[in-house]
Each structure stands twice: as structure tokens, then as C-alpha cells.
């Protein structure tokens, strides 16, 4: 499964730790949410970067005290139609100012790249290999949006008052 990060197909430097497995000290690792919450201290002294896999039915505000020590938060789309993690992503970025890697996992498809990107994700575990090279095209398909989001914090109505969107030639 290819990983797209900051628009490029890259190697995944993080390993996934399942439940109670031992976490090697010097490798970047993604640990389950429950494990992080049970003993956050366990991860403070690690040599490698720590990330967390956060389920989509748990309030991300619980993560707030830990965010400063986390290099990565992975959010989950059990299927692409379950959109809870879009809200989690925006809350992490906009309210908690999380600046680390925000990774979309689960069923992550080409036709959702743009929404994910706008919600603040910068890394994508792409479900279908053929979708990965289409990433840039997908997020550049639109030249403007109405509403503010993580990618464009100013809403259209503020940008619009700058002249260039005004047209004197209505079509209808």
C-alpha cells in the first residue's frame, strides 16, 4: 500500500505496533490509542518518533495533552463513506494546532484525496496503488472553494472582496 506524504510517494518510516507488542526504542512507531493513554510516560524517553493510531469514535481532544510529543496521528476511515475522521482532523489542526504528520488510513481512495487534504491530512495510506500517482492531479483539480478549511483558512467571502473574482458579465 503506497504512502503519499506531502504530495510524493515515499517510504513509510513508521512501523505499526499492535496491542501489547514490544516497541523497539529507536524506530519510528505508531502505537494504538489505548496504549498511549494507558502509559504515556512509556513513550517519552524513546529514541524513535512516536505516532498514535486514533479510532474515529473517540474524542480527539483526549489527545491534546500528548500532541507535543507525537510526531504523527493516524486517523481511520473504516470505509470511505464514514466521514468522522474529517472532523477529527480539522479539530486537531485548527483547535489543537497539531503540526505533526496527520495520516489518513483505512479505505483511502483517489476521489477523497481533495477532501482529506482540505481537512488537514498530509499523509495518505492509499488503498489502491494506481491512485497514488494521481494525488497531485486530484488535489489541484479545483482552483477555488467557498468555505474555509485547513488548507485555506480564509473563506471565499473574504478573498472574494479582493476584486479578481468580480465579474461584470453575468451569464444568467
Amino acid at each position: 500500500m503506497p504512502l503519499v506524504r506531502n504530495g510524493k510517494i515515499v517510504d513509510d518510516l513508521f512501523i505499526r505496533i499492535l496491542d501489547d507488542a514490544v516497541v523497539p526504542d529507536d524506530v519510528a512507531a505508531i502505537v494504538p490509542a489505548a496504549r498511549l493513554l494507558a502509559d504515556a510516560g512509556e513513550f517519552v524517553q524513546r529514541g524513535g518518533a512516536t505516532g498514535v493510531l486514533w479510532p474515529n469514535d473517540r474524542n480527539v481532544s483526549e489527545l491534546a495533552p500528548h500532541l507535543g510529543r507525537l510526531a504523527l496521528v493516524a486517523l481511520v476511515f473504516p470505509n470511505f463513506r464514514d466521514g468522522r475522521a474529517y472532523s477529527q482532523a480539522r479539530i486537531l489542526r485548527e483547535r489543537h494546532h497539531f503540526r505533526g504528520e496527520l495520516r489518513a488510513t483505512g479505505q483511502v481512495l483517489r476521489d477523497q484525496f481533495l477532501l482529506l487534504y482540505r481537512a488537514g491530512f498530509d499523509a495518505f495510506e492509499v488503498s489502491k496503488p494506481a491512485d497514488a500517482p494521481a494525488f497531485i492531479k486530484a488535489i489541484e483539480r479545483y482552483s477555488a472553494f467557498y468555505q474555509p478549511a485547513v488548507d485555506a483558512p480564509a473563506p471565499a467571502f473574504r478573498r472574494r472582496s479582493v476584486k479578481n473574482f468580480r465579474s461584470d458579465q453575468p451569464v444568467n
Binding site: R118, Q147, F157
Partner: peptide, 12 residues
Amino acid sequence: QHSTMHPEFTYL
């Protein structure tokens, strides 16, 4: 306008 292609609320 606000709800058109809203990134957070397209998969409610």
C-alpha cells in the same frame, strides 16, 4: 456556498 463541497461534511 458554505456547504458546497464542504471538506468535512461530504460524508455525513
